[in-house]
Structures are given as C-alpha cells and as structure tokens.
Design a binder for these strands. Structure first.
Lengths: 250, 250
DNA sequence: AAACATTTGTGCGTATGTATG
DNA sequence: TCATACATACGCACAAATGTT
C-alpha cells in the first residue's frame, strides 16, 4: 500500500482508509467474524497516525460493518449482501430468495416534459409520462431507489396500485399486464447524490450502481423505462446469461 | 440542492460539487458543447464561495471533462463514453465498434495458492493457477484493469501469446480454444484502490465497476475466471438480453 | 471604435479543519 | 493536551478575455 497521506484529492485520509477496508470486507478478503489487524498495525500499513486509523474504523463501526470490542479487537460484523439477478423475466421481488422485499412510493407525477429518451422509447409523441419515484427495501434495509416512467394510456392509475401493493410486477398485473420482458439493460456507477443518500439513509459518499432498463410487452410495445440506483456496498448485480446453445459461431 | 458546506463526511465541498457536475455531464443533462452555469451561479446554487466552485471546475478541467475559456465560460468537452457489451460471446475487443483497443500484460505468475473460489471454479485440485494482470485501453485511454486466472494445463504459455497479441481472445485462439462462452457475470462497484488509480492513470477517488466473470469451453469445462475493473466515469456496461422467445412463463 | 457587463484567472489574507508528533 | 504543518473554505480586489450595446 502506497502512502495515503497528504494528497489534495478532496478525500481525507481516514476516508480513503475506510474505503479500502470496506473493499476488503465486501470482497471477502476479511470474512464475517474475522478480526481486523490492530490499529497500530493498520497505522503502520497505511503509513498514517493511529488516530487516523481510529477515525476510519469508527466510520465503519457507525454503519455497523465492523464491531469494536475493547481489549479484544475489531471484528467484521454480519452484513447482508443482496444479490440482484438481472434477466429477461426477473424482478426485484424474486431476486433475493425468500426474504422480505417491499417498495414504497415516494412521489408520483404526470410529467408533461419527460426526458427526451423516455419520450422516444415510450413513443409518447408529446403526451405526458407517468413518473413514479420509489424506494425498495430488503429486510427493512433500504437497498435501491428507482425512477419509473410509464405511458399513462397503457397503465392508468398504476401509482395507486403500486402504493397499495408495493411492487411494480403486482401493480402491472392488477391493470392486466402480467406478461412483459426486459429488452435492454445498461449499468453504470457513480457516487450517490445528496438526495439519494437521504432517501436511502446512506453514509455520505456511498457508491451506487445505476441500472437503466427498458421493459416491453410480449407484443413488443414498450411498457416502461426505469432507472434504479442500488447501494453498491450491499448489492451485487448478477447477469442471467442464456443457456449455452451449442452451435452459432460468433 | 441542499447545503454542501461544513460536513464531517470526509469529502471536501469542492469534491462533492465536482461529482455532482460530473454526474450531470455523463448522464447527458449537460450535453457536449453545452456551457456550464457561470462560477457565480454555481456558487449560489451550491451555497458556497466562488473559489470553492473554481476548485471543483478545475478538477474536472484537469481530466479534460470540461474546458474553461476566459471571458466566455466553461464548456463540456468531448468525452468518449465507452459502452462495453456483456453477453455470451462478446469480448472487449468487439465491444466499442471500430475503435482501437489494446491489452497490455502487466505481470503474470504461476500462483500456487490462488483464491479458494478460483481454485474451485477451475477445478484445480491444489494445482497452481496461471494469473495474468493486464490493462486495456481504447484509443489510448486506459479503460479497464483485469485479473485473469487460467488452468495452466488447459492453456499453457498463454501469457506469452497474450503479451504478443494484446487480446485474450486471440491468445486463446492461438492455443486452439476459439470456442468458449460466458457462463456467469456479476457486477459490483466501489471506489478504486490506490493501485488501480495508478495502473489506470485515474484521478483519485474514481469509481470503478467490478465485473466478475467465468468463461467455459463449449463442452462445459471451466476455462477462465476473470475480474475486470472498468473506470465508471467512462464506461457503461450493456447487458445483452436473449431475444424475446415468445412463450415460457416465469 | 468605445463603453460596458459578464466571465474566467490571479493574488493574497484569514479562519477553520485535519493529521501528525 | 498542546503545538505545528498543510489542506480547505471564504473574502476581497483586480487583471484579462469575451461579447454586446
């Protein structure tokens, strides 16, 4: 590890050390229950003062990623890693096994001027879009923040059903469209905005995975455009590859 | 935008403002060629001093994301957004169209004790793994940093061919294995390590997309385990969904 | 051409926060 | 706890380039 001290990077040293330790934890190099090296060892390893290491560890302890026990050491705590499967017919609700997932509608609006890409994909031709803002939680932990756009002609009053049911899939079934598939997904990542850290109750500076997706009805009619931000320190996206179909050369 | 001043978050105000502006640029709200609001306007919007805004803009200018022209304004510069397609038979080399991609071997080793997951997936049974560390560039810009593990029995001297050819696909073809497919991909994100910022020549604190993938021969024999880190400010991962196959209910 | 407002660039001083010893 | 060094943020004045009137 090269020196982490004294860099005009806009990141304080304790922040960088916290991120490095977080990486080792979520990647499994430091397993759940494992003891972290002592503060003195970490201080030497990162080339900083012990106080600086203490601040980094305190930040991780504040988000319950590690637990410090006086006289004994600091240990990696239980931390649910949610794996979200992305495929043609997978939904958040069935992505994490049997655990409890719930969506909560934060806000909805009929947007007269949706983003151009939305308007084009949904073929709105100037008509307004139904926009819904929501937060998804797994086992009570806020996991993702989604923005959905629909054509209100296709799915009228969808926000009412979503607010009641807490699931896009169920809400769509309610209005008679159970059969839709994912047609495109693209994934990026960035640091969370201040608004997102508030909505998801995140520690400042958390990284989010941004998934942009388009779903369509079986007939091919575009149904929804969605942008979901997953907190990257707890969620991993798992790509569903089609089964190996023997032939067809690249 | 809420106040960005005075937060003990480990992130300086100019950093947060820079990230916010970067987000608006890469998400297209600020198009290429568009003029940013003046420093005074931004200062008022973020509730900080103009000098603080200047530091944020200077950071973006240092990575050539914006160009400032005295007396005229600051403008969004050309910035290649690389879209990397992830599918069953897609490789980095054919993911960005006709532009020039090249891989450079940084290091290789016969690793006696590879990570447990690698050893299991490749069915090494205690035998060493061939590990290769590489950097991929598109049009001269370092884009990703990959670590590959192979079974040396399946692909002997692969590192020699990779060093010469600059492509895993070509190197594998050289040793007679042209036909392999992606069997699993999972995607996460985090801030880059110091080592990665060095290898990819990144500004400090850059976010990376981490893709873990397993490839197998058509017969089903696991061929390689790979972990690729893409700089998230320039790369977007595009998931290749199988064509809509009419029936099969979820 | 000339005057003016706008915008970025430069310089310096001061107060506060962060990291070290 | 205290002292020291540096990065950060703010405040202010003015220079230089640009575009408009």
């Amino acid at each position: 590890m090269t020196s982490m001290t004294r860099s005009p990077s806009g990141f304080s040293a304790w922040r960088m050390i916290a991120e490095e330790l977080r990486r080792e934890i979520v990647e499994g190099q430091l397993a759940v229950g494992a003891k972290l090296p002592s503060e003195s060892e970490l201080a030497e390893r990162f080339g900083v003062h012990r106080n600086t290491v203490r601040q980094a560890v305190a930040a991780l302890a504040a988000e319950h990623l590690v637990v410090a026990r006086r006289g004994s050491g600091t240990f990696v705590a239980e931390h649910a890693l949610v794996v979200h499967r992305i495929g043609v017919r997978t939904r958040l609700s069935n992505s994490v096994g049997a655990r409890g997932t719930s969506g909560r509608l934060l806000e909805w609006a009929l947007e007269a001027q949706p983003p151009l890409t939305v308007s084009q994909t949904l073929r709105l031709d100037g008509r307004p879009a139904l926009r819904m803002e929501s937060v998804q939680a797994v086992d009570g932990l806020p996991i993702s923040r989604a923005t959905h756009w629909f054509d209100p002609q296709l799915a009228p009053d969808l926000h009412v059903h979503y607010a009641a049911l807490g699931s896009i899939t169920l809400a769509l079934r309610e209005v008679g469209m159970a059969d839709y598939v994912r047609v495109s997904t693209s994934i990026g990542a960035r640091v969370a905005t201040v608004a997102e850290t508030a909505d998801l109750d995140l520690p400042a500076g958390t990284v989010v995975l941004v998934a942009r997706a388009v779903d369509a009805l079986a007939a091919g009619t575009p149904l929804q455009v969605g942008m979901t931000r997953f907190r990257a320190d707890r969620v991993e996206l798992d790509i569903e590859h089609p089964p190996v179909s023997a032939e067809d050369v690249p």
